[in-house]
Simulated assay, not measured.
Amino acid sequence: MNDDLVTATLSAGPLLLRPWLAEDLPALIEAYRDPGMRAMLRSQVTDEAEAERWLRVRQEGRESGSYVSFAVVDRDRGGELVGNVALKCPAPGSGSAEVGYWTAAPARGRGVAPLALGALGDWAFEAFAGDGLTRLDLLHRADNEASCRVAEKSGYGFVEVLPARPPWPLDGHRHARLRTGDVLRTRDLLP
């Protein structure tokens, strides 16, 4: 177990990115009531049992070093839960990892996602530099235009369209951010 992953906490302006807590259950359930969010995510949280399972998976990911998820709270709004950002930790030597996020409906349009993803990316490049991390990928459904805007604002350039495959019924987009700060684009992948 990597204690640094288990306890990692990040700051981004008014936002605090911290481990998920049992006290977050009501706000987590409320966030998942948003039909727009449920339509875009694989995991579903509709009741306390599912919320407890969701939190347990995040804790186990931190403890195993495979997945680090942060509750994003707004300190200027009394610690209101405004989102989630996560990193699927890179395998040593792989050079890349995947990030993901969601923003609670009441917090959308306030710049939460780009700010939180920026902090997560900066932290990931530093925390996993020894593992050779040089690229972060952000994937989303192609019909999610808001996620395209968030990716661009967060320094993740559009790379490619990913064909639909289970469990996703629609095509997706891959965006990437490089450790150097350069924007990775499709042309960078061509021979």
Rank of each mutant, 00 (worst) to 15 (best):
M1L: 09
D4Y: 11
V6E: 08
T9P: 13
L10I: 10
S11T: 15
G13I: 07
P14E: 11
D24L: 02
D24P: 10
I29Q: 06
R33K: 12
P35H: 03
P35S: 02
G36Q: 09
R38C: 01
A39I: 10
R42Y: 11
S43Q: 15
S43P: 15
T46C: 04
E48P: 11
E52V: 13
W54R: 11
L55M: 14
R56A: 14
Q59R: 14
G61D: 03
R62I: 05
E63Q: 08
S66E: 03
Y67S: 02
V68Q: 02
F70V: 07
D74S: 07
G78T: 14
V85K: 01
A86T: 13
K88D: 13
C89M: 00
P90Y: 07
P92H: 09
S94L: 04
A97T: 08
V112H: 01
L115Y: 00
A119N: 04
G121R: 00
E126R: 15
F128E: 00
R135S: 04
L136Y: 06
L136S: 02
D143L: 11
D143C: 12
N144S: 06
N144R: 13
A146R: 12
C148W: 06
S154P: 01
G155P: 01
Y156K: 02
V159E: 14
V161P: 09
A164Y: 04
P166W: 04
P169H: 06
L170Y: 12
L170C: 10
L170V: 14
H173V: 09
H173M: 06
R174Q: 07
A176H: 00
L178K: 02
V183K: 13
R185V: 12
D188V: 04
